Amino acid sequence: MQAAIEKISGKQLSFLIFTFIISTNLLTSPSLMVTFAKQDAWMSALLASLTGFISIWTMIVLANRYPGKTIIQYSSTILGKWFGRLVAVNYIYYWLISISTITMQHTGFINTLLLPKSPTLVTSLTFLVLCGIAAYLGIEVIARSNEFLTILLLAFFIPLLILTIMEANANQIKPILAEGIIPVLQGAVSPAGGFMNQLFILGWLLPFLNQPSKARKASMIALVGITLITVSIVMLTVMIFGPMTEKLTYSFLSVVQYIGIEGSFERLEAIAVSTWVIGCFVKVSVSVFILSLCVSQLFGIRNYRDLVPPLTLLSLIGSFWIFKNGAELLNYLAFTFPLLAFINQTLIPLLLLVIDSIRRKPERSLH
């Protein structure tokens, strides 16, 4: 019923996927990937896109088999009532942890760079209230806003990439594959793979697409854009800082600050901060919407909007409770998140597809 009321276009879906994934890739991915793959980290980013193709294929096949239904709804059809409920509870936990983590990342970033004297609670509360309002207004409003915000983000960000090229040193990415392919694969399946697999959000967004036939094209365009930007960011960061990249918390921000010092431009980091804030706002707004949808569909609540305020408050509590400090957060992103992401973003959807395909075989043989 909700999907029939709210609709988004193929272009809006493409922009949503792009902003959702690239927002957290912008500043943190280079250092995480360099930790594993060193100067070959850009190759890890390229290989990670393959996991995105798997996610797109899986979610679109399932959506075509169960049109108008989210992954929460067709899980019960495929696995049965109780196992389907377990999948729903698991995803509720996953999205709650994700929102809390992103909020903590965002708050730490803003308090470190812009508002060091502001209480953490005020920064987190202000951010989540805005995201909660967007989620309450619905996915159509978020998608329409994101169309403008993504264009704004790119208008800010692409000139930064061009300026970065001027300071880059290609010798920093040599020698290529000095330690073999294994570190590159580690960099691809660890942080990068986790980020690319976030295309599984199609499991909640596809029922709202006004032209389902455009799902594959819109998703592929978004994946190509994400891959190009991520590879460019990682490569340029390594070309400027080399081995130092893995020691930088916000590596690409450090690149932007370096450009401002070396060149004639000042306070360029304001542009990088703006792109981070825009991206995190869209990501958390979509995540709160999906979380509310999960809970409403699990308990049969007709209007997911009634759940947005309490779930936003719960996410605020989670952002203070989940990690003690920034070091724990970074450790989680580098080592725990990849496994959690693989299970929720790749393994569960693939298992659903396999089980559904096995169940459908006897039906075909009867016909």
Rank of each mutant, 00 (worst) to 15 (best):
S55Y: 03
T77F: 07
K214E: 09
K283A: 01
I181R: 00
S296E: 06
T28V: 15
T103C: 15
I110L: 07
L32K: 08
L152R: 08
F281W: 13
A88D: 02
C280E: 06
V231M: 05
L128E: 04
Q12P: 03
L236S: 10
L298P: 03
S232D: 06
P183A: 13
S357H: 13
G300K: 00
T101A: 14
I182A: 06
V87Y: 03
T28F: 13
P212E: 09
L223T: 02
G194K: 07
L50E: 13
I201T: 08
F335Y: 15
A45V: 01
M239L: 05
D356V: 03
H367R: 10
E6Y: 14
I92G: 08
L307P: 02
L268E: 04
N90I: 06
Y91W: 14
L352I: 07
K81A: 10
R364S: 03
Q297E: 15
N64S: 11
S287T: 04
G318P: 15
I60P: 00
M244L: 13
S98D: 08
E140L: 09
I60T: 15
T227Q: 06
I151Q: 04
N146M: 04
Y74R: 10
S274L: 15
L316K: 10
V189N: 06
V286P: 10
S292W: 15
L347G: 04
V189F: 15
R364F: 11
V129C: 09
I162T: 11
T58Y: 04
P243E: 01
L79K: 10
I8L: 09
Y136K: 04
N303T: 12
P338W: 12
T35K: 07
K361P: 00
G225E: 09
N90L: 10
N169V: 05
L209T: 02
I355M: 13
T120C: 04
L330M: 13
K361L: 13
V129Y: 15
L352Y: 09
T336A: 00
W276R: 02
A270E: 11
V282P: 02
L185F: 13
